[in-house]
């Protein structure tokens, strides 16, 4: 999934930057899109080099983030369109994908995307069993059974007798 610009990375030196994922693929991104990420903006302000290596964002995630940035950098789109794009962007995504996305937005400091994704994750987590959450986040239960029972006793009141889901 190499999406390096066909025209060559150096033709638009002032206006674009190359971002390399941890898989080694390079993405050509317009500078107006890149600066929506606070981290990238800082890098671009401080150095001439137009190649930025992201050591912990994979191809798939980076492509999504760049699609998001490009859309939001497009001045031709109205705010309403961008909002509906945001909704479309997170809908139907696997929880795992969202998890990588929220990590990437944290690294790149794309605040609005981070909030959108975190909201989606929180929405998915609603009405889910604790066991589901542990599984999705790959968390080991480090409570003793007694400690967990105590916490359960304290929060049980907040719940109606509604059914929690495990998938």
């Amino acid at each position: 999934m190499v999406t390096t610009d066909e025209k060559g990375p150096l033709t638009a030196k002032k206006k674009s930057v190359i971002i390399r994922s941890c898989d080694g693929d390079e993405f050509l991104v317009s500078e107006s899109a890149a600066v929506l990420s606070t981290s990238l903006k800082k890098i671009l302000e401080e150095k001439e080099d137009r190649l930025i290596h992201l050591s912990d964002i994979d191809n798939k995630t980076l492509a999504m983030v760049i699609a998001y940035l490009s859309t939001h950098a497009d001045d031709g789109l109205s705010d309403d369109l961008k909002r509906s794009f945001d909704q479309e962007f997170v809908s139907g995504k696997e929880f795992d994908v969202l998890k990588y996305l929220v990590l990437a937005t944290d690294t790149l400091q794309v605040t609005c995307l981070c909030y959108t994704v975190a909201k989606k994750m929180a929405d998915i987590m609603k009405n889910k069993l604790v066991e589901w959450v542990r599984r999705e986040f790959d968390i080991q239960n480090d409570y003793t059974p007694e400690a967990e029972a105590e916490i359960r006793r304290l929060d049980a009141w907040a719940w109606d007798d509604r059914q929690l889901e495990d998938d």
């Binding site: 990590l103 975190a118 994750m121 609603k126 604790v130 409570y143 916490i151 719940w159």
Partner: peptide
């Protein structure tokens, strides 16, 4: 997840969910 990400996710949970989230670990 780094705490910052976890924070952003958890803060969007309703109170009852947040109480349950304490049970995860």
């Amino acid at each position: 997840l780094p705490v910052s990400c976890l924070w952003e996710v958890l803060r969007r949970l309703p109170p009852a969910e947040l109480l349950s989230a304490a049970r995860v670990c």
